[in-house]
Design a binder for these strands. Structure first.
Length: 739
DNA sequence: CACTGTGGCCGTGGCC
DNA sequence: GGCCACGGCCAC
């Protein structure tokens, strides 16, 4: 199965895709145009909160994102491309969209030409804003685009009129120092980073298909075969308009295959005086002595710096098809690394944010490069590329949700060695001495292995990681850079913000939610926790034969869907909803409005459970397609598993304790009632935990009656999860053995 | 520095 | 030796 694009577009004659790796002498990759202009001093990443001023003569890197002059082509027309990122171009004062052309394997730039401006919302009337002296004094204030906007305030369920206050640049909304958000007494949506704001307002889906036509950015609709749409409709009888609309919008996002990204992995070695010391990237005191490059188009190369008293060493067999290039001059070596960095659409590193790219940036400056000659942009804790996208696999693999749900907790420690041996079965080259003391060949072998492992992490299991990233971009609506660096709560936040904007809902402030909804009512069993969680049934010790385990298929997402749980619907403002009390809680839930989280969680849950999960196991489908569906259902699982938890997390901007505790309260209600019913039916219940019940030797009829009863009673799915020949229980909970 | 939640078991170390 | 608080790790 190929993940080619031939399913959706009829235009351009299909070109044969680039050959895969292992070409002995690959053609050097086509390079985007590199234009050298004079230095600019523009800022990016302006909406960072609470920047700390660091004194010192050197401008701290935390403060600024320097813009370099490396650029990609900006064509007026393109074929279908994948949207990889949106950022803000300080130089052009507008949004910059990076598109990936899967045919040519390169990046195009598209600069916003719609006149979109950074803005915030305030309840100060427009006329007052226009004559407010502090506002007028702000040089970034842009009176020309200010206007009155109408929004739905979900917390009060009212329509509100607000003033949209626009600025000439994102920094003027609220960077360091006094932005408009600090001047105005009350603001909303003023802490959203500009590039996210742009994605919401243009309803862009990163990771999905776009093209440039006559200079305009357009979405390309991925065509789903008619047969599949019909099959889908059979499984999802259209419930209501909202649901159907969302279905039309979501299904193509999940069905459109990800491209086979042209990409390069890179790793550098720096001469170190001590073995146990990682060189300080900021000081960049020591020379870069080697760099290894492994790419999807077959480049395998190690750049080596010639130094005194280093022997050549014996060429190991693993370097037999690796090109070795020696440099007399470190500056030239780094220049060549920069050429690679600026000529690939995607660059992979392991810890490049904090080390490799950061070191190169500082080292280059030290060696006399001008800032605009460095194709890297440093942020406080990221290192981005001027042309392409930098993915730091260390950051991605550090993500707990990815660790647990995508890789099944296979690696414990997030080091290249641990991750690679767990996922790939290959280890780093063991080091017996300082890299500085290695012969050229040994150094090359060591460095090359690291780059090779880094590349392999992106390619193993048929590019599983790249496919997963692409899907998570589409779900979260985050750029490739952001989705690989942020945690699951940020993915969900961004998805919900997007959906608010799309529907004209005001994005609420956390303190307003907390003030109106209040804290929790229940108390946790465990000290230090905020509210009561799930129930674990005391196991009856012993050995049991023929044990059937019933399991609620994603219980919490189902509850969120079925009981209409969302921050705006739990304890809604309507007096007529107050009687609609949620079981085991003093909270009521809205009868008039479908909760946004309830809608989205329910939708994603249903799509996963009824469509992608069964398809991922359908042996009648081609293997490649099945694999794709499996990644889709995994990506959905990652999001769904966090959808309840975020409501109970203070870091989540839509934090809503009553919504979180209602979800677990309903969970307890559901499992308790299910167990009672089972006992009523004469079934022996020997154990249960959160969403599972263990039945001892039940008859098929008893099982069926129970499943049907649950379906009727709660409209959620109880399934037979496992059948054990025998299970042994000790008297301890969460500790059993089933065969 | 990373940032979805709670429930439960177990080993460690402080304290009497 | 017994009690307890705490952190790490797992189940869900």
């Amino acid at each position: 199965m190929n993940m080619s694009l031939d399913r959706f577009i009829t235009k351009e004659p299909e070109q044969k895709r680039k050959p895969e790796p292992m070409e002995p002498k690959p053609k050097p990759p086509e390079q985007p145009k590199v234009i050298i202009e004079k230095e600019t001093e523009e800022n990016e990443e302006p909406l960072e909160e609470e920047e700390v001023e660091i004194e010192g003569f050197e401008e701290p890197e935390e403060a600024l994102l320097e813009e370099t002059v490396f650029e990609a082509e900006t064509p007026e027309n393109t074929g279908p491309c994948f949207l990889l990122s949106v950022s803000y171009s300080g130089k052009k004062s507008c949004a910059l969209v990076k598109l990936y052309d899967p045919e040519k394997g390169k990046i195009y730039f598209w600069y916003d030409n719609t006149g979109h401006k950074p803005y915030l919302l305030t309840d100060m009337p427009l006329q007052e804003v226009m004559k407010n002296p502090s506002v007028l004094k702000n040089p970034g204030f842009d009176p020309a685009h200010c206007q009155v906007v109408r929004k739905t305030d979900l917390l009060l369920d009212t329509e509100v009129e607000l003033t949209k206050v626009t600025a000439k640049d994102p920094l003027s909304i609220g960077g360091r120092g006094k932005g408009l958000r600090d001047i105005l007494p009350q603001t909303w949506e003023s802490r959203i980073r500009y590039h996210d704001c742009y994605i919401y307002d243009r309803e862009l889906y990163p990771g999905y298909l776009y093209r440039i036509r006559n200079g305009t950015l357009e979405r390309v609709e991925y065509k789903i075969p008619d047969g599949e749409i019909e099959a889908f409709k059979k499984i999802f009888p259209p419930e209501d308009e909202v649901f159907k609309e969302a279905l039309d919008r979501w299904l193509p996002l999940f069905s459109c295959p990800a491209p086979n990204y042209r990409r390069v992995a890179i790793d550098i070695e720096v001469s170190t005086p001590q073995l146990d010391r990682i060189p300080d990237a900021k000081a960049a005191e020591y020379p870069v002595i080697s760099a290894a490059i492994v790419s999807s188009d077959g480049v395998k190369r190690v750049l080596l710096l010639r130094r005194e008293e280093i022997s050549l060493g014996e060429k190991p067999s693993e370097l037999s098809d690796v090109e070795l290039i020696f440099y007399e001059d470190e500056k030239k070596l780094i220049e060549d690394i920069f050429k690679v960095l600026s000529s690939y659409p995607i660059v992979l590193t392991f810890n490049g944010d904090n080390f490799d790219l950061r070191y190169l940036w500082h080292r280059a400056l030290k060696l006399g490069f001008r800032k605009d000659q460095i194709p890297i942009t440093l942020g406080r804790e990221v290192a981005l590329l001027s042309v392409g996208i930098h993915i730091d696999l260390y950051k991605l693999l550090h993500n707990k949700a990815i660790q647990v749900y995508a890789f099944g907790n296979k690696y414990r420690e997030v080091t290249l060695d641990a991750v690679a041996s767990a996922l790939l079965g290959i280890k780093k080259v063991p080091l017996e001495k300082l890299v500085t003391e290695l012969s050229y060949m040994d150094l090359a072998a060591y460095c090359f292995r690291d780059a090779e492992l880094t590349y392999s992490l992106s390619s193993f299991n048929n590019d599983m990681v790249m496919n997963l990233i692409t899907l998570l971009m589409r779900i979260s609506r985050l750029s490739m850079e952001d989705v690989t660096r942020q945690g699951v709560s940020n993915w969900i936040k961004n998805l919900l913000y997007f959906e608010h904007r799309k529907r004209g809902y005001l994005i609420p402030r956390q303190e307003d939610i907390l003030r109106i909804k209040g804290e929790t009512f229940t108390r946790a069993v465990i000290k230090g926790k905020k509210y009561l969680g799930a129930i674990v049934i005391e196991p009856r010790p012993g050995v049991y034969f023929n044990v059937v385990v019933l399991d609620f298929a994603s219980l919490y997402p189902s509850i969120i869907k079925q009981w209409n749980i969302s921050y705006e619907t739990v304890r809604c403002p309507h007096s007529e909803c107050r009687s609609n009390v949620l079981p085991n809680t003093p909270h009521w839930v809205c009868k008039k409005r479908k909760g946004l989280m309830s809608l989205i969680t329910g939708l994603l849950r249903d799509i996963r459970v009824y469509w992608f999960k069964p398809k991922s196991k359908d042996k009648s489908l081609p293997e490649g397609l099945r694999r794709w569906y499996d990644i889709v259902q995994h990506a959905l699982k990652v999001i769904l598993n966090a959808s309840y938890g975020v409501f109970g997390a203070e870091v989540f901007p839509l934090y809503c304790p009553p919504a979180a505790e209602s979800t677990t309260a309903i969970g307890r209600y559901v499992i308790t009632n299910t167990i009672s019913k089972a006992k009523e039916e004469g079934v022996d219940v020997i154990y249960g935990d959160t969403d599972s019940v263990f039945l001892h030797n039940p008859s098929q009829e008893q099982i069926n009656r129970l499943l049907n009863w649950v379906e009727e009673q709660f409209s959620i799915d109880l399934e037979v999860d496992k059948v054990y020949s025998y299970v042994t229980f000790s008297k301890r909970k969460k500790n059993y053995l089933g065969v």
